[in-house]
């Protein structure tokens, strides 16, 4: 497969199009259904975070999602030009504490890390923020 990109407006109703786009590419790359589902969910979480936090629900900003094959690695890059953040401020929740205190929210980043093999950030607030999600295919 070759690299390809989809651009969506920053609206939650467009999440389904991103999931379909990424699922098709992941399947073509060779992943079985279980991994395809994991990748689509991780990308959904990344885009949802962009809509909520980077663009604060402004509906007409651009989100670019690029899928790239590198040997056995399938990489998905999600780019926005919204408000950035310091990735070192994002901590995985302690789920026991989370449940015992009925906490809410904050699960997206944790899910991305559990679902993918690698999660990387390049943050340049207002200019270009990129999250790269990678999963390796056992060939």
């Amino acid at each position: 497969m070759t690299s390809r990109t989809i651009h969506i407006e920053s609206r939650t109703e467009r999440l389904i199009a991103v999931r379909d786009f990424v699922s098709e590419a992941a399947r073509e790359f060779g992943f079985a259904d279980d991994d395809v589902n994991k990748i689509a969910l991780a990308v959904d979480e990344a885009c949802t975070n962009v809509i909520k936090h980077a663009y604060r629900f402004a509906p007409d900003r651009d989100i670019a999602v690029t899928v790239r094959p590198h040997n056995t690695a399938f990489e998905v890059a999600i780019r926005d030009t919204g408000v950035g953040f310091d990735p070192s401020d994002v901590h995985a929740p302690d789920m026991k504490d989370y449940f015992s205190h009925f906490r809410k929210g904050g699960l997206g980043v944790y899910l991305m890390k559990r679902l993918m093999d690698k999660v990387e950030y390049e943050i340049d607030p207002g200019k270009r923020n990129e999250v790269r999600l990678t999963k390796f295919l056992a060939r």
Binding site: L41, T48, K104, G105, L107, G108, L111
Partner: peptide, 10 residues
Amino acid sequence: SSAGLGVFMA
């Protein structure tokens, strides 16, 4: 997705 899970937590 986690948005759905969040509703149950809420």
